[in-house]
Every structure is written in structure tokens, then in C-alpha cells.
Design a protein around this nucleic acid. Structure first.
Lengths: 237, 237
DNA sequence: AAAACAAGAGGGATTAATCCCCTAACAGGA
DNA sequence: TCCTGTTAGGGGATTAATCCCTCTTGTTTT
């Protein structure tokens, strides 16, 4: 299955991360030549959408993509899916600060070949690139083969509830300091319908109260804590 | 006021970040010798507590400390305060992925000399080190001199509400999917007292409902989204 | 075509959350 | 000492949140 590279031909890497600091400083470590297997970074991008269009317009296709999970557009998940569908032989490595099991599981279902923490030595990432290109998978303490096998016998929706459009919209409104009556107006519907969707969310997400919904939304990346207007809670300026 | 280093004597830097990737890859960029002013990283640590004990046991003291904001113990804030009190001439630069104004403001009040986003080029951080050692302050789009001056005419508590022990404890329980009655049992008090503290929190934080309290706790780093047991919301395993 | 299912909405009941007013204890300042 | 403020509570009222049951109207399954 995996496209094995001939030794001494470089593994071509594409690298997406929203922090320029990481993008720039990582390259020399990935391209270190202390082994017989060279690695070359042929393109970088600051998010998944950029990465995909860069790959599309590049005559040279990368063998391995390294990407971060950028919140909250879930770029990571949809980017992985798109890469796996468009270029089935391309390998995908996730390099991120998030170690939440929910993200790891969703990434496995999206089809990644490895998941690495930013709390690793840069050399480890280089090794992961080589390993994933050689064997088609990179395992570590975050993703072990056992876990992957146990996940493959299940369906994604057992782990990752599929939310309807209305449920998703309500979930996003739930984090705002408003009553359901107010949210109903914003969603152009009645408080009773909101109740229905909320009950469905309770059931699907295993929450008992609105607090549970809010924390679900936050923990699973439906909220961008960096640019959300919750900063208005401070009366700055 | 600032201790100016003689040219060609290296600026000594201590560097704390919870990701090994950043620690390792940054060093060569900080130590680049493309200018007349050399910079030398004399110690690194993975969090603020480690950093301070490393400085204490080091015969050579750094001129500049670079640190991340590690959540949720607020290490960043207390680390900065401790450094500023123990070594008043030492400069402190924050290097972080968080650009929330609440964090920036709290860091200014804690006494930092500069605040840099991880979405900067590594060369910028080297420049910031040199600038902060030369002038005592590093300004950019996140911290401008105008903002600092406007902040200096105010008191911290106008921006950053001071919470009592009970209020802080309640705030942390608020993010859990429990009723106030249950929280009262956990806090070994009555539901009526909880009500009192909650009302005080509403007033201090400008929230209208528990949802507002939950979001305040999340946005301001009272919750560690990485290791909190809110992952139990998934029925994994 | 019948059955099962999902989304949207209402009625009515119960519990939790929020609000307002009030007291006692206690600490710190003028 | 008196005043003031804070903390921890209680009583009782109101509104919001949650629950349970029903009833459409489509859609999907069988």
C-alpha cells in the first residue's frame, strides 16, 4: 500500500502551522542530513486551506504533510479528509499542542497516519516523517496500533456524535450569556423548538445541563477563545 | 534604570516554554550572530517554577527571561511577579500563542517588558531581546507605549477583578455539569452561601448567568482544557 | 403502503436559577 | 467606640431551565 521511496531520494514534505515561529524554526531540523534518508520541505502554509491550494498549484507533490489543528473552523479535520480523498497515497502527520483524546480519535477517523505532540524533540518529528513514509503509519504514546485496531472495529458516530445544523447553531449560541428565549429570537424560531434541540444535544453529548453543553463546545473546539468577543467581559476602554 | 550591556558582551537569556519543540528549535535563531550583539541562551525550562529554581541555582544570572503563559495554574503571571521582585533588573519577555487582551493587560500589571506572539518570525524575538535589554521595553502591535501609559493611570483591579478564595473555588466548580446544590455539598457549605458568592461573581465579572461565569473561567484560563476530565463526555473505551 | 423516524412546536408541571430583602458575626478604620 | 464593609446565611418570590407527553408534517425504511 504505502509508496516506498528509494533510499537517498528525498522525502518531500509540506508543512502547515498557524505560527510562523514553528514553521520557520522546524525546517532545518526536518532537513538535517545526519542519516542516509534526506527530507526536503517543499512548501509551507499557515492553515489547511492554504496548504491544499499550495499543493494543488505545485508541480511537485509532497509525500508527507505535517499539519496542526487550527481551531475553531475544524480546519484540521476537514483538511485531512480532503487530502486523503484527493491524494490517497499522501501521508498525513498531525503535529499539535492538543492531546485531547477526542481530537486524536477524530483524526484517526479522518485518516491520519500519525499524531505527534508539540512537546517532542524536533528530531522525533523527522523520524516520524521517515517512518510514516516507509511503513504508512507512525505510532507513539498518543496513537498506538492497538488503539487504531480497536477503533477500526467501531463506527465514528459511536464516538463523535453527528449534530444537525440546528443543533450545531444552538450549541454555538449556548456559550453566550443569553437565555434560550433570546437565542430563539436569534435563531428565528420558538423557545419550544430550542428546547427540543437542546434535549437532543443533552442526549447526544451526554450533558445534564447547559453548563455541560458549554463545556462540550469549548473542549471540542467550537469556540475560538482567542478572538471571541467574550473579552467584552472586561470593561477595557 | 535599565542595566545596559556593553556591546559585544553577550546578552544572557533564560527560556521557558512547555513545548520541547519550541525550546530546542528557538535556540539557534536566538544565538544567530548576524549582528554585533551576541545573544546566549544559558538555561531553559518547561515551566515557570522550573525556570525560577534554575535561575536561583545558576551562578550566572540571565539578563532577559523569555516565557510562555502556561495554563491554568497562571504560572505565567506569578512567575513574572516573582522574577520582578527577586531580580528587579532582569527583563521579562512573554512569548505566547495567546493574544487575548485580558492576558496582555494582566501581564503588563505583572511587570513584563514585552509581549510577543508565536506568530512572529524567530528573528523578531531575537530583536526583541536586544531591544528590551537596551531600552527596558519592547513595543509592538500587541503592546504599544500608548497602551502602557493609559494603563499606568489605572489600578489593576479596575481591569482584573480580585476574587476571594470562596469565589475562586466556586468559579472552578461552575464549569462542572452540577447544580449549585451539589456544589454546595462539595464546598461544605449551604446553597444560600453559594448564591451569595455567585452574586458577587456576577457583579465582579459582569456576567448575567452561570453561562457567563463558565465562559469567564474558560477564557481567562481557570480551566485546563487539555487534561480536564470533561473528556468523559465521550464514552471512549 | 404501512411503519418507523426525525424536526418543529405546544401544554403543563417541576426543579433549578436568579433576585430582593434582611440579619448576625466579625474585622478594620476613623 | 462607632462606623463601615465583608462574609455567611435565611425567607420568600419570580423567572428560567428542565422534563414529560402530545401532535403535526415530512422523510426514510421495510
Amino acid at each position: 500500500m504505502p509508496t516506498v521511496n528509494e533510499t537517498n531520494k528525498p522525502i518531500l514534505v509540506a508543512f502547515a502551522d498557524d505560527h510562523e515561529l514553528i514553521r520557520v524554526t522546524m525546517i532545518p531540523y526536518l532537513e538535517t542530513n545526519d542519516e542516509f534518508q534526506p527530507v526536503k520541505v517543499i512548501l509551507t502554509a499557515s492553515n489547511g486551506v492554504e496548504l491544499i491550494s499550495a499543493i494543488k498549484s505545485s508541480p511537485q507533490k509532497p509525500h508527507v504533510c505535517i499539519l496542526d489543528i487550527k481551531m475553531p473552523e475544524m480546519d484540521g479535520f476537514s483538511t485531512v479528509r480532503e487530502i486523503r480523498e484527493t491524494w490517497p497515497n499522501m501521508k498525513v502527520l498531525i503535529l499539535t499542542a492538543y492531546s485531547r483524546s477526542t481530537f486524536i480519535i477524530r483524526m484517526i477517523f479522518a485518516g491520519v497516519h500519525g499524531y505527534i505532540s508539540k512537546n517532542s524533540h524536533p528530531q522525533t518529528i523527522r523520524e516520524a516523517v521517515i517512518e510514516v513514509q516507509r511503513t504508512g503509519i507512525y505510532c507513539n504514546d498518543l496513537i498506538s496500533q492497538k488503539e487504531i485496531r480497536s477503533l477500526q472495529t467501531h463506527k465514528e458516530k459511536e464516538f463523535v456524535p453527528k449534530l444537525s445544523e440546528a443543533e450545531l447553531e444552538l450549541l454555538k449560541y449556548c456559550i453566550e450569556d443569553r437565555t434560550y428565549k433570546e437565542i430563539a429570537v436569534l435563531m428565528k424560531t420558538t423557545a419550544k423548538s430550542i428546547e427540543g434541540h437542546r434535549n437532543k444535544l443533552f442526549q447526544k453529548l451526554g450533558a445534564k445541563s447547559r453548563t455541560g453543553l458549554v463545556m462540550y463546545a469549548v473542549v471540542n473546539g467550537y469556540v475560538d477563545l482567542e478572538d471571541h468577543n467574550y473579552q467584552k467581559l472586561f470593561k477595557i476602554q
